[in-house]
Nucleic acid binder design. Structure first.
Lengths: 113, 113
DNA sequence: GCTATAGGCAACCAAGGGGTTGCGTATCGG
DNA sequence: CCGATACGCAACCCCTTGGTTGCCTATAGC
């Protein structure tokens, strides 16, 4: 039975997405074909170790996954987390919608917390 | 750093979302009712200035907006940016989908960049 | 007027992040 | 076996960030 874990906080995922270079890496990996580190390094503008660090951040957030293949490690996108993140944004956004319609109905119901 | 073509990169938005406390602030603001800084501070666990800093980060990313009202400044959610961010995730995720189906069709088409 | 409340500004500090370099190890191809 | 390639580990550096505190201004209410 696949354990449906309660979704952890999406903050780390967003933090991982909050970097221009990491977004570019994701976009490249988003083409579907797994890529090696050196391949991802060419055109990135930073050193190989820099790319490695970024990849590990992405992996830490569960956005990518790597598998050693011979002398190179291939990285591919992990789409599940992207969708989870998208749902998180939906949640806030939609909550906003519902609050608006509730406001229209009840006009006022202040809850000081 | 020279900005390549894309005018609005979603990275700063994600970076702003990449913090637990900021997400909580957004969630509270997501209820629809504008809130003052002191109000948002109660229960946040940090000082008022800390909350102010976080709010400014969110504002810098265009996720919230404030308006001074008397002696307090009221903050409300800016939903447009949330939807933009959601669309950005869609883009990567969907690109992945398309790449997969393309791979199935063309089997191989390597582009070394 | 006086006082309490809401907030801004600035300085300060510890910790983390992004980037680098140097060096070591494993793999591939002759 | 030898060299080139692909990668990991660790140290280092600088700048940003998250958080604080102290002090000042402005508004509200009596």
């Amino acid at each position: 039975m696949p354990q449906r874990r309660r979704a952890a906080t999406p903050a780390p995922v967003f933090a991982a997405l909050g970097d221009e270079l990491r977004l570019r890496l994701l976009a490249r990996l988003g083409r579907g074909e797994p890529m090696s580190i050196s391949r991802l390094t060419t055109g990135s503008g930073i050193s190989r170790q820099g790319v490695t660090k970024h990849l590990r951040v992405l992996a830490g957030a569960g956005l990518v996954r790597s598998s050693r293949q011979g002398k190179e490690s291939l990285w591919r996108l992990e789409r599940r987390r992207l969708e989870e993140a998208r749902r998180s944004l939906d949640l806030i956004s939609r909550q906003w919608d519902e609050s608006l319609s509730k406001l229209k109905m009840f006009v006022e119901s202040d809850r000081s917390d």
